[in-house]
Structure formats: structure tokens, C-alpha cells
């Protein structure tokens, strides 16, 4: 969807500490992330007109866990609130739609998850197709490995370029020694897969003049779209991501060059595939943050991508792309274009 008539901008964001295993509850993580996001803007919780939280009951192990997360937003007197059982990037999408109604000015969106609560290798298969995949324990590493093989076969990636992505993302290691490691799911090695991370992120959106009052250089959302594909990866061409391509076209990626792209690529080959599908050249800085290969807070990882892309605009940049994904083998993809104005 292209830009609405009302200006809607990201004006700030914050994230909790990103750790392998937190001793804090999801509510506590959110409480600090929201406070850290709004305080530098001079805002209080009472100033927030709408909140949308992204989290996942299946990972928390608690029905309606998002209800206790509401404790973090100070929802009294009652607030307009919503929830998505998705990454916070989709909460952002909902807030962006909501702000277009024009009757409110400020929204806060969050993404939060504690992956360490359970074993992702055992939980994720239960979210797959219940008839043909879940009973086999078809896990995320398996799907990622099958997609990596397809992406390698198509020439978009090879094991060396995948290792280079890992070294760049994490800022450690060297390609030769990584390639000497054993496979954990052929053709994937340890460095090709994401860490398990606990964490939360919160982002503040504001409309038009209010955004310009609050910050010098808002990161205007000028294009935003998400698309999905068939749920069963065996029905898809795994060396392509048509939903990413369509979302990027609809968000207006082609209208002008982007300087940076933050891609939610949890696996090294996903970054190479997404770069290819989005047509990003070597002049585009991809995942300077380290991306999901460095820190992968489940349900917040995509929102963090938008946050880092917004940072580029806050720092004087002109145009940035943020991408988020959901489901096995890049099933569903979201593209958000952020722009600054002189």
C-alpha cells in the first residue's frame, strides 16, 4: 500500500537488553522498553492514543499472555488497544492503518518474546501444518536447510558467501575457520543459524505536525505492505520469495534508491535470497545492525529491523527499507519504506 494522505512517522524506539536467557517476565521487558522509547520524546503513557502489541502465546506457554503485557502500557483510564499474534512489525502495520483514520496522533507498538522459555526446536513444529508436517516434527532448521539447498542450487548463494554474511553480521570469526566446522543440518553450519534471544522492543509513531513537534527528523513511512504464500513449503519454489517481491513493489521500493536495508534474515542464505529478490545492489548497506543473525528476539526481531532503519533516517539518511518475515522458509513477508525530509 502506498503512502496515505496523512503523514505517519516513526519518531523513536527502544529495545530491552537482548540476552540468551532473561530472568525478567515479558511484562517487565516491555515496561522498560516502552519507558525508554517514550521518555526521550518527553511523552508519558497518558499521551499514547493507541497501542498494538505483538507476541505469541504458544512461545509464552500461557493463554492470553498478552493481557498481562497490558500492565506495561498503563491502560487506565481505558485505552484503545490491539494485539497481533505476530512479530511487532505487524503490530506496526496495524498502528499505521489505525493512525490513518486521523482522529488520534500517537501510537506505541511493541514486539516481545522469551524464546528461552521452551525449546524452539520442539515448539515450532507444532505450529506447522497439523496433518502432514507437525506429526513428523518438521522443525525450523530442517526447513531452513532445504531452502538453503534450493538457494545454493540456483546460484544465489554458496557456502562461502553464507559464511561471509555470518562474519559480517556478528563481527567475529573468519570464513575459512567457519567453513571447516561440521554441518548441523547440511548445508547449514552453526554460523548459518540464528541465536536464541529473549527481548522486547517498543516503537513510537506520530502523525503530521505532532511528529514534527516532537522530533527534528521524523522517519516517515512512505510505503508499507505485506504478502503471504502457501503454508506448506513443499508447494513453493524455495529459491524465490514472490511475496517479498510483491510487497516491495506495492510499498514503492522502485521509486527511489534506498541507502540501507534491514532484512529479517535469521539464516545466512535468507539474507542472500532477500537481497536478490529485492534487487539490492552493493551500494545498499544491508543489516549494519547485525540483523537477526546477531540478535533474534522472537516476535520483536522484525520490529527491530524497522527501528534500525528509522535510526538511519534520524541520523540524516534519506531512504531506508525494513523487512520482516513470518512462517517457514519466508512464508509471509512485510516491507516498510522509511524516508526523511529536508
Amino acid at each position: 500500500m502506498s503512502a496515505p494522505s496523512t503523514d505517519i512517522a516513526v519518531i523513536g524506539w527502544a529495545q530491552s537488553q537482548m540476552v540468551r536467557h532473561t530472568d525478567k517476565s515479558e511484562t517487565q521487558l516491555l515496561m522498560s522498553a516502552i519507558t525508554d522509547a517514550i521518555t526521550p520524546l518527553g511523552l508519558q503513557r497518558a499521551d499514547i492514543d493507541f497501542t498494538c502489541l505483538g507476541s505469541c502465546d504458544y512461545i509464552t506457554g500461557q493463554a492470553f499472555s498478552f493481557v498481562s503485557n497490558l500492565d506495561a502500557i498503563g491502560a487506565w483510564p481505558p485505552k484503545r488497544d490491539s494485539h497481533v499474534e505476530m512479530d511487532g512489525a505487524w503490530a506496526l502495520y496495524e498502528a499505521w492503518l489505525r493512525l490513518q483514520e486521523g482522529d488520534i496522533e500517537i501510537a506505541v507498538v511493541t514486539g516481545s518474546g522469551r524464546s528461552s522459555t521452551g525449546d524452539p526446536a520442539l515448539i515450532y513444529p507444532m505450529e506447522m501444518d497439523p496433518y502432514f508436517l507437525a506429526p513428523l516434527g518438521a522443525d525450523p532448521l530442517t526447513f531452513a536447510a532445504l531452502q538453503a539447498r534450493a538457494v545454493i542450487a540456483s546460484g544465489i548463494a554458496d557456502e562461502r558467501r553464507m559464511a561471509e554474511v555470518a562474519v559480517r553480521a556478528r563481527g567475529t570469526g573468519n570464513v575459512e575457520s567457519l567453513l571447516a566446522e561440521e554441518f548441523i543440518r547440511q548445508p547449514l553450519r552453526r554460523h548459518d543459524v540464528p541465536p536464541i534471544t529473549d527481548g522486547a522492543a517498543a516503537m513510537v509513531l506520530a502523525t503530521g505536525d505532532r511528529a514534527r513537534q516532537l522530533v527534528e527528523r521524523p522517519a516517515y513511512i512512505t510505503g508499507f505492505d505485506h504478502r503471504t504464500e502457501c503454508h506448506n513449503p513443499s508447494f513453493r519454489a524455495l529459491d524465490d520469495s514472490p511475496s517479498t517481491r510483491i510487497a516491495a513493489e506495492a510499498a514503492g521500493l522502485a521509486a527511489a534508491p534506498v541507502e540501507v536495508a534491514e532484512l529479517q534474515a535469521a539464516f545466512t542464505h535468507e539474507e542472500l535470497l532477500l537481497r536478490s529478490v529485492l534487487g539490492l545492489g552493493d551500494d545498499v548497506t544491508v543489516n549494519a545492525s547485525g540483523g537477526a543473525l546477531k540478535e533474534n528476539p522472537i516476535m520483536a526481531s522484525g520490529l527491530c529491523r524497522v527501528g534500525y532503519a528509522a535510526d538511519h533516517i534520524f541520523g540524516g539518511g534519506n531512504r531506508a527499507l525494513a523487512h520482516s518475515t513470518s512462517g517457514p522458509c519466508l512464508q509471509q513477508n512485510l516491507v516498510c519504506i522509511l524516508e526523511g525530509r529536508s
Binding site: G137, A138, L141, R149, F235
Partner: peptide, 30 residues
Amino acid sequence: SWTWVTTPSEQHPLDHPFAFALVRLDGATT
């Protein structure tokens, strides 16, 4: 296509290392 599972989980079909594979059965398109 295939990948090799070195350490099967309790949910996997076999309790020893095996391949997860995309098998195109004779007569099938997918």
C-alpha cells in the same frame, strides 16, 4: 532435496540420524 538430521528430537520419526527429504512420488507434481 534433503538435509541430514544428526541428532533427532523426540518428535522425529526415527531415533537415529536420518535425512529429511523432499520426495517426489511417481506421478506427483509436488
